[in-house]
Write a protein that binds this DNA or RNA. Structure first.
Lengths: 178, 178
DNA sequence: GCTCAAATGTACCACCCGGTCCAATATAGC
DNA sequence: GCTATATTGGACCGGGTGGTACATTTGAGC
């Protein structure tokens, strides 16, 4: 589904790859959409699992994570964000799936929010924006970078998007008190 | 296709809406993918047509255009970017279609590039980044904003993404000479 | 070892999909 | 008005789709 899209992947494709029968599939999932929601959740878990290995509340950790995102996009041959690439098609398929996508993004945002909140409480950044807002902006930059990078088969859009948001965050570093 | 996605829209859906027969479709287009490429081109034309009404090389024009993008997303009930929403599914469908998407984005970027080049040549901005790079960053921000906005059914991601890139561009205004 | 529910295999289905084919019709050029 | 070509109508098709029905096997608990 990640590689070929939701509708580009038939149940038989999946079952063949999983060496399973249809009964198993319908025993555990109520429909293809239901399975798709589970796939989305799985993808999010993978992404957050990798992300957790970085101390995003530090500048070096944040930067390292960004670098890994970029390297991952290259390693996965420009196939896009494991979560975001499913988002557009799912959002258009049904209201339920769209809600699942929203939930996934909001969950992702909340993990970023925690990092920014740590930064804020430790005085590393100072801004009128809430940590939640910073998280949303950051995730949007990530997704935009992925989208263009995948279409153009070029890492540069990701590099630039992430650099933009990184620079912005750095600009929030409080000036040393006089 | 814009509303329900490429594979979520059958030929019969299209032909019914157009009150046309299959023969007509296959007389003018060689396949559904071929039609899809034409749809993408059409969408890009629409977007660029609207964009052309703004003088993006001015700060007020740029800002006004961003505002219109945001209002448009609301007016179209959070269905996403007319171009970008087709991008992910098309990129995954076939290499040809992916190339069409890339072409569309690059065309879009080139129009932005012209605006930034004007800004640069007139001394309104000063940066190591080329106008083309600024254009790519801007388009990525737009797409990221759309993506999250559509999934979350909330304008804020777009507002924040565009604000981020706008602020960045403003930061490139040269300091007055001493 | 028996029971019963959970799990799995298999066959099947109605429907829809993109695409083809060929006949019918309009239209432009003379 | 005749012809040649562009355009359109409509029937048809093979294959693939998600989903269902039901029989069978597995395995946990007693």
């Amino acid at each position: 589904m990640y590689e070929r899209g939701l509708r580009g992947t038939s149940l038989e494709d999946i079952l063949r790859a999983a060496d399973a029968g249809k009964s198993q599939m319908y025993h555990y999932f109520s429909s293809k959409d239901d399975l798709a929601a589970a796939v989305l959740e799985h993808q999010l878990t993978q992404v957050l699992g990798q992300q957790q290995r970085f101390r995003l509340e530090t500048w070096s950790g944040l930067r390292a994570w960004f670098d890994v995102l970029i390297e991952g996009q290259k390693a996965r041959e420009f196939r896009g964000c494991p979560v975001g690439s499913l988002a557009v098609e799912m959002s258009a398929t049904s209201e339920e799936l769209r809600a699942s996508v929203a939930e996934a993004f909001l969950h992702w945002q909340s993990t970023l929010e925690q990092a920014f909140e740590k930064m804020r409480s430790r005085g590393r950044i100072e801004t009128d924006d809430t940590p939640a807002e910073l998280a949303q902006t950051t995730l949007a930059a990530i997704q935009g970078g992925y989208l263009l990078s995948t279409a153009e088969q070029d890492l540069q859009p990701m590099v630039r998007s992430l650099k933009l948001v990184y620079t912005h965050l750095r600009s929030l570093i409080p000036r040393a008190l006089p």
